[in-house]
């Protein structure tokens, strides 16, 4: 059997914005080489989990390890430099920067021009549309194109772990399908994926393992297959 390597380990974190904790005693593992998903309804705390991992809203208690390095209280830019990238909720492209500049920012930690160029070629191969539009301001692009910019930007850092927050939000069904296909291809590039979604069916179809979040707590977890067959999950989320 293959040896399991933990890419990300979240251990009993509590995170909140003001006084009340939004996340309570949450633990999860993302195994290297997998697509691991976190499912949950709107407001269940998915984005807050990501913010905790990225150090944007550090947890009040608990620990977060990334490839065995304790990143719980590290500044965001230092966490990112360890090889973690994210595609944020709502794309968050830099509207006043060009497509190319947005991509360059994704590779901000890399100084080697050749390496960056090679990565950009890879992104352009994945999204030829972005190469055509490389000098266009990202803010003037369509939602689908901005999604490409955001994904491409996430790949420019050549991360070990890519965290994706609700990529299908606001996209047409056709683009959603395309999105999931791309996420699958990302895993094939040896990038571990932590995928946060509300779109249960399609997410479980490409995931290896999943967690279900409700009101800031993990209420179910298991391999994608078992979650799919789980009666509770079915009733709660397959509406």
């Amino acid at each position: 059997m293959e040896k399991k390597v933990s890419a990300l380990s979240v251990r009993g974190i509590y995170t909140g914005y003001d006084r009340a904790d939004v996340i309570e005693d949450l633990s999860l593992e993302v195994e290297e080489g997998t697509i691991t998903c976190l499912l949950g309804n709107n407001g269940s705390g998915k984005t807050t989990v990501i913010r905790s991992i990225l150090g944007l809203t550090p947890p009040r208690a608990g620990r977060i390890l990334f490839h065995d390095a304790d990143i719980t209280h590290l500044a965001t830019h230092k966490i990112v430099r360890l090889g973690l990238a994210s595609i944020p909720e709502g794309r968050k492209v830099f509207p006043g920067l060009t497509v190319e500049e947005n991509l360059r920012l994704g590779g901000y930690q890399e100084d080697d021009k050749e390496v960056l160029l090679a990565r950009m070629q890879k992104v352009y191969a994945l999204f030829p549309r972005l190469e055509e539009r490389s000098t266009q301001l990202a803010g003037t692009m369509s939602g689908g194109e901005q999604a490409m910019v955001s994904i491409g930007r996430g790949l420019m850092g050549a991360p070990k772990l890519l965290i994706i927050d609700e990529p299908s939000l606001g996209l047409s069904p056709l683009l959603v399908k395309e999105n999931f296909r791309i996420i699958q291809s990302i895993r094939e590039q040896n990038i571990t994926v932590f995928l946060v979604e509300q779109n249960v069916r399609q997410t479980l179809a490409i995931s290896d393992y999943g967690y279900v979040l409700s009101k800031g707590r993990v209420v179910a977890q298991g391999s994608a297959d078992t979650l799919r067959d789980n009666e509770e999950v079915r009733q709660a989320y397959f509406g």
Partner: peptide, 21 residues
């Protein structure tokens, strides 16, 4: 300059890009 512009437009996302704010 690109980092300055990124921070000006969206501080948080700039941090997530690995920029030392």
């Amino acid at each position: 300059g690109m980092a300055i512009r990124a921070v000006s437009q969206d501080e948080e996302t700039a941090r997530v890009m690995g920029i030392n704010f």
